[in-house]
């Protein structure tokens, strides 16, 4: 249990630039140094020094988005997978034949893209084209492993590790009862963690498939972020910032999470700084703060407002933090 963050700490409020996105913000990303906000419907917003540029890319809801700094990939209820480049040029990467919702996307190294519609996960690479894997139930999460060309697919009653470039290797199913939603590899690739339908995380140590359960949350965990050194997994879903220790052989097995209090409202989004042991947190009341892991000290970037924080992301260098809210407020904090 760490000490409570100091609310009278210096504020970053004068370093915040805000815009009205006009719709619920469902994703925040950076393409180069430019903050890009993904709206719940139709469009993305580029926020540059010159102003706001709105680019329509889908004909309905945007259900998923991810970015690697060079390009942004989105899936929509129009059954389309769209790639957006840093200059705003966008193109259709794939279409679902039946027009089903594309609601999971992931980006891997070397330009690999993964997405899913219903039970079918797809991977597209420049080298080997498109491959598909049918999960036992609807795909609820996708993540590329940090090493090797391997994709984790979360679904009901577990997750499956799929090697798209090794057709001879059967997908390996990790069983655990219940509905697994988000999925994430630890940066060193030793652990796989899923967020479940109930307010619980599940994990496996991949070396021996040892299962682990991380519980105690108030609500379903929707936001997961690994610290730069991979020592902690930061999560939303509680009134304190929950950091599960993943250093050491056993990861969080048999260990308590580090808990950092900040304010007393539930944390909706977390984003770990790309280099330093600092976590940006956004609350269901719209407040945003930077929390230092070592001593729990917090700097407020934005006071509580009307609407929950629904998107939060750092740029590659850790000098800008982009955020978006359910009511369409969006902005960027420059450090």
């Amino acid at each position: 249990m760490s000490k409570t963050g100091n609310l009278s700490a210096p504020s970053l409020a004068d370093r915040v630039r805000t815009v009205d996105a006009g719709a619920v913000v469902v994703g925040a990303h950076f393409l180069g140094a430019t903050p890009v906000f993904v709206l719940g419907e139709e469009a993305v917003l580029f926020l540059s020094a010159g102003g706001v540029r709105r680019i329509a890319i889908h004909s309905g809801a945007i259900l998923a988005s991810t970015a690697d700094g060079a390009r942004l990939v989105t899936g929509g209820d129009d059954g389309r997978l769209i790639a957006v480049a840093a200059d705003g040029v966008h193109r259709v990467l794939a279409r679902d034949g039946a027009g089903r919702w594309i609601d999971q996307v992931a980006l891997g190294r070397g330009g690999a893209v993964a997405w899913s519609a219903g039970r079918v996960a797809h991977v597209l690479t420049a080298k080997s084209g498109e491959r598909r894997f049918e999960a036992p139930s609807t795909v609820a999460g996708l993540a590329f492993a940090p090493k090797g060309f391997r994709l984790a697919v979360a679904h009901y009653n577990g997750a499956t590790l799929w090697f798209p470039d090794a057709p001879g290797v059967p997908p390996e199913k990790l069983d655990w009862k219940g509905s697994h939603l988000a999925v994430s590899f630890s940066p060193d690739g030793r652990f796989l963690v899923t967020a479940m339908q109930e307010p619980t995380l599940h994990g496996w140590r991949l070396a021996d498939r040892q299962p682990m359960r991380m519980s105690g949350y108030l609500t379903r965990v929707r936001s997961l972020s690994w610290t730069a050194d991979g020592h902690f997994l930061a999560t939303s879903g509680a009134e304190r910032l929950v950091l599960w220790p993943f250093d050491g052989k056993a990861g969080p097995m048999g260990r308590a999470p580090r808990l950092i209090s900040w304010g007393d409202t539930r944390i909706a989004m977390v984003a770990c700084h790309p280099c330093r042991p600092v976590v940006a947190v956004g609350t269901v009341e719209g407040a945003i703060a930077l929390v230092r892991i070592d001593d729990g000290a917090a700097i407020e970037a934005r006071p509580a407002a009307a609407s929950p924080v629904s998107a939060l992301a750092w740029d590659g260098s850790g000098s800008q933090l982009a955020f978006g809210c359910e009511n369409g407020e969006a902005g960027v904090v420059t450090l």
């Binding site: 619920v24 719940g40 419907e41 809801a61 259900l63 609601d103 009901y156 509905s179």
Partner: peptide, 15 residues
Amino acid sequence: VRGDLVRIIDGLMRR
């Protein structure tokens, strides 16, 4: 729960 409803309602609420 109806897992598909959780997903669909989340998607619909974007609109």
